[in-house]
Design a protein around this nucleic acid. Structure first.
Lengths: 253, 253
DNA sequence: TAGCTAATTCCGCATTGCGGAATTGCGTTT
DNA sequence: AAACGCAATTCCGCAATGCGGAATTAGCTA
């Protein structure tokens, strides 16, 4: 199948509809057509038609003011997808214990495009801690958890991701690529990756990739993070990171 | 906009792709094209093209043997959808306490077509209990939880649902309709609905609808269920159902 | 190797999805 | 009440996109 012919199999209308569903963030209330068009880059009339379709299928619902929200069919799909994932259910109690024991916040993430999406989050017991929410997205390239995922990919997957990152970041890609190369080196030598103020100025984080249990399974990643005033670089490297690496080994066994 | 013109706005390709994603059940391993074609009624080549597209978008992934599973993009959407739903997070601890206190299993459900999908489940502490799983589907018409949802709908919604149920059940619809009418009556007089062996011969269940907090929000529903040998009809009606009704009032306040 | 079944690709076709323009709807201001 | 501005929806001509039966390829088993 040549590259030209591959385009024949790709159903653009379907991909566009899914891109529309992906426009929502967990903290969003209702979104209107204008906002959706802006977020997706699709023409307004296309948004209107796709929105109409997704309303009919139940994947969107409309509130009293006419704004769209994710609907029951999306929730039903969500429940199925989450339930089918044993890893998340197995990991959550361990993450909770880790957060409690070390006073950090931990998150389990999965890659979506050039972001990481949090599948599970456990907050530090400390009063002031890093705010994390299930469903939130963070950029893969500048976060510890994203760097861990990157470092844990095999060569062909990484090359693909490089293409997507280059497209997203343009002229900034060169310096980001260098920091990702450093992350790979860190991963090889220490077993973890770090982001000390790279994404958020006052957030210290370390991350690990979790080895897939079988070929074809998506790589998941785990982080531990805390505020700068409670965790300096030395503490992250000497205390938190080794404990996280040990947790990862425990989970991957 | 007339009925003929409404068809112009409906994007069939999108709806078909979403129907393909909805073919998965939580207990499914990988599914092949043949099985997907059988479940969805779509031609094999259509399944192949849509599957190819969903693989490219990340909504499906392929395992080593070539079978499809729900992929990272679906999980990311799932995390967003679940996180955006405050109700589920608020209700789960209450459900857990209820299950422990009364020795029943409880589930929170949402309507998807003519089924109920479980969003949250809490199992009885008893060794032998009703097996419930997040993401599982049960028929709306024969379960306590489904009957509660039905009874909690307003008239126009119920008429729409009647149409879908009539289509699904054909000649069996007449007797099912009668039992749903009885459920509505029960709901009006007692505040709960019941299914004593109607869906599963040895399962006793009662259900309630949870009033939406705002117009346009989907109706959720809650049940409590236990095995026949531990719970007779009298116990369900006198002990479990009133406690469930009280829980519902507490949550809806 | 032959046979069988699942999965994929081909390709002619027509209808479906497209999007700019026009229209409608709604809220705010004068 | 009318005017205005902006969001949302609908229209409609068009062509390319999505379709599905048939052919081909791939993979597994006897």
């Amino acid at each position: 199948m040549s590259a030209i012919e591959e385009d024949r199999m790709f159903v653009t209308a379907l991909a566009r509809g899914l891109a529309l569903l992906a426009a929502w963030r967990p903290e969003d209330g209702a979104l209107g057509n204008q906002e959706l068009a802006s977020r997706t880059g699709l023409p307004k009339s296309t948004v209107s038609r796709l929105g109409h379709t997704l309303l009919a299928t139940g994947h969107l619902r409309q509130d009293a003011a006419g704004g769209y929200r994710l609907g029951p069919a999306t929730l039903a799909l969500a429940a199925t997808a989450m339930a089918g994932h044993d890893m998340r259910r197995a990991v959550a109690p361990r993450m909770q214990a880790f957060a409690r024991e070390h006073g950090v916040s931990t998150s389990l993430g999965i890659r979506d495009g050039t972001d990481i999406v949090y599948l599970e989050t456990c907050r530090s017991p400390a009063r002031v801690s890093v705010q994390l929410n299930v469903g939130s997205r963070v950029p893969l390239a500048t976060t510890a958890i994203g760097r861990a995922l990157y470092a844990g990919l095999d060569t062909s997957e990484r090359e693909q991701l490089d293409g997507a990152l280059a497209q997203r970041y343009g002229s900034r890609w060169a310096s980001l690529k260098a920091s990702l190369a450093q992350a790979c080196h860190d991963w090889q030598t220490t077993g973890f990756t770090a982001s000390f103020g790279d994404y958020e100025a006052d957030v210290m984080a370390v991350g690990i990739a979790l080895r897939p249990l079988a070929a074809g399974q998506p790589t998941l990643c785990l982080n531990a993070s805390g505020p700068l005033f409670s965790f300096d670089e030395s503490t992250m490297k000497k205390d938190i990171a080794p404990a996280l690496v040990a947790l990862g080994q425990c989970l991957g066994a």
